[in-house]
Write a protein that binds this DNA or RNA. Sequence first.
DNA 1: CTGTTCACG
DNA 2: GACGTACGTGAACAGG
Length: 933
Amino acid sequence: MTAPPTLMLVDGSGYIFRAYHSLPPMSRPDGTPVNAVYGFTTMLLKLLADMKATHLAVLFDAGRHTFRNEIYPAYKAQRPDPPADLIPQFPLIREAVRAFNVPCLEREGLEADDLIATYAARARATGAQVVIVSSDKDLMQLVRDGVSLLDPMKNRAIGPDEVREKFGVDPDKVVDVQALAGDPVDNVPGVPGIGVKTAAQLITTYGDLETLLARAGEIPQPKRRQSLLEHADNARLSRRLVTLRDDVEVSETLEDFALGAPDPGVVRSFLTENGFRSLLKRVEATLDTAPDPASPDTPAAVAQGVESVPDDYHLVTTLEDLDAWIAEAHASGVVAVDTETNSLKARHATLVGVSLAPRPGRACYIPFAHRAPKTEGLDLEGEGAGAAVTNIEDKDKALARLGALLADPSVLKVGHNIKFDLHVLAGAGLDTVTPLDDTMVLSFVIDGSRHGHGMDELAQRHLGRTTIPFEAVCGKGKNQITFDLVPLDQAVRYAAEDADVTLRLHVVLRQALLAARLVRVYETLDRPMIPILARMEQTGVVVDAVRLKTLSGEFARRMADLETEIHALAGRPFNVASPKQLGEVLFDDMGLPGGKRSSKTGAWSTDAQVLDTLAGEGHALPALVLDWRQYAKLKSTYTDALVEDIDRATGRVHTTYSLSVTTTGRLSSNDPNLQNIPIRSEDGRKIREAFVAPPGFCLMSADYSQIELRLVAHVAAIRALREAFAQGQDIHAITAAQVFGVPLEGMDPMVRRRAKAINFGILYGISAHGLAVQLGISRGEAGAFIAAYMARFPEIQTFMETIKEQARAQGFVETPFGRRIPIPGINDRNPAARAFAERQAINAPIQGGAADIIKRAMIRLPDALSEAGLGARLLLQVHDELVLEVPEAEIDATRDTVRRVMSTTVALTDAQGVTTVPLDVDVGVGPSWAEAH
DNA sequence: CTGTTCACG
DNA sequence: GACGTACGTGAACAGG
């Protein structure tokens, strides 16, 4: 027989205030106050170190409004706001709890005490011992056989004797005493003239509250009798207020609170980030010890220790050895894979070697194309002294066996940015890698932009391990060598480590994904995007080089003409491309008014807005510079650069998409960026004419109409906007009619334009100044527009307040699909920084939600097209637009399928499953992107 | 390597 | 009453 489990339930909210008031102000290097965080963390460490508990959870109050306010509005109503320097510590304290792998719970409308009562009752029913960690007397009512209280400040146990000492009655009568005595601190009325002492005496005499009230007439003291008769209802009300609910519907069971070892990386980074160096030192010893014996099978326990397995790395040069490693991968069901190449351009890289890691610590490196350094002279198969180079024997067979492993559905392949490896492997003829997992994408889903997701950084953070830097193996600068020239002993250490670290990170991050409840986001939104994007990148888009070169020439001529004119007007030649020199010409030489100096460097500002203002005042030079700048931009960034990006082999441009760059969950595109090809200006638009379809095909562009505004209408439940979208109306015109009270028919385009600007402002977390700048009106006018908008669509304010509150409390906001977006500055001391974070908090769920939607459509689309027997191929994604190349004979059918998939894969519905806002898709077709869009 | 500018959604 | 301001990217260029 083993001892019964012991569940500790910590009253988190109560402890925060005590820690705050008992410690002097402390702050970390960035200025964030942390005294309460420090006190709290110390207490938590102590509880964990004492090892008295087998199960642990920390409970918090959620918001100030609880069901008790429904019963009695004055309850705790006069409590002052928490001190300003405590507010930013609330989310940090929750982070502390999670960092130590302890469940952390709160529930809207309930106090922490109610959750404690509920979990205590449930645990007790299973035979567990319960220890409530709190010094709040309100919890004394819960003391009974199997349930005790622990005061963490005084480290004093509170049992029935201590309760009787405090309240003069048994624990089960505590609420009756409190009902009579009341509590001025919490605004519990009680019965006037009766304190704890009298109440205890009365309850002892009469047995319980109801009996006492029924027989109040028998009380000899006239004043006491009258007060009781008069305030009997107050006593009953008070009893309801102080009685804790132990019947909250909860889904957690005792097992969910089982103590598991924390992730040492998470603990380290939490303590480091908050400057708790002494605490880090104290816990360091315990972090590397064996898994917690109390629960060796919890996922956390599995993750724990993954960083301390010793390295066991091998070079593989025979098929026999290779087969043994493949067998290990089959046995474990998972293998981390990393490819080494001679280039960062995955599609052009040749496969130099492959590393495999079937178990933490165990990894091998298989060289395929290593060479001896040239300096040794003629050296055919690496027989030269000291520079023996032996690649794997029989490369074709080796590749085939590797290919079979990669394609085997029973073995999970893990990579760090595995999309890169997919391209490299495809180049070597291995084009099926499934199923797959990506530690970079996992890290992004869990932590977003809180930190980078490079392997070296993650290894440091989660495994406390410094990996061998690439430079240490290949050098840097002009002396850098390619990986095929790296000596094999070094190559093994570096490459095997990469696979090994990837596998170890996979263990840690999968566990973290589960703990953060983000499995669904990863599985349905990001993971399936990896092969989709790989295919789009591989396909590429045809770009007409001749057309671009012609445009380049045209732009160059115009620039030359403009430059001559500009120099003439300036009276001297200067570098038009230099903002510094231009500023001197405009504001020093010519002495034009209205110059602004940048706050950082003190240089004259010469951006488009400044030049535009000057041009508007009739100055010729600034207007010419604006023109010149436009051509310079188009030429250098697009027409010249894009030609260089055309792949000689395919005649196409192949961008690289990233899933783990943006703060909101959007994709990003680079090398080249195909998400910012010009469209707004006439000249810029011509660049899109160079994006064309191959013979027999045409380009199709399908874009979501107003997707972000629809999401606002959905998320913020703005009735008027929902209806307008449902009826397919012109949303900006409707807004104008509502806000400015003008009729829809014959509307002044200027009025509509203003409404449109306000709608965009809403998406960005509107400010009067921002809107004023955008519309060229005064801040006062802009403020009046915003006020009118808020009055017409009041739901928007609730949405904004709610989302900001969520950001403040949790440090992140969520898209409607559950993606988490950290908002780090939300509790910043600096009001401007805080305001910025608040606008981010408002925009993030909208922009991120739209990104989630188009991801779902992209994941679904290729299958839908092939199910329909269509040969269209996805080429590009530009946030709300998809570009495909479509066989000319299949245009109509493809248009139908694309529109259906994009508008129905995700439905925006209310709690009843009724669609709130439809998703509309505009589809265009043409020989070039310019004509399709 | 940083700051400025500007292309896109 | 002062202060600094729309959200999210990537790339080219100047200048230290």
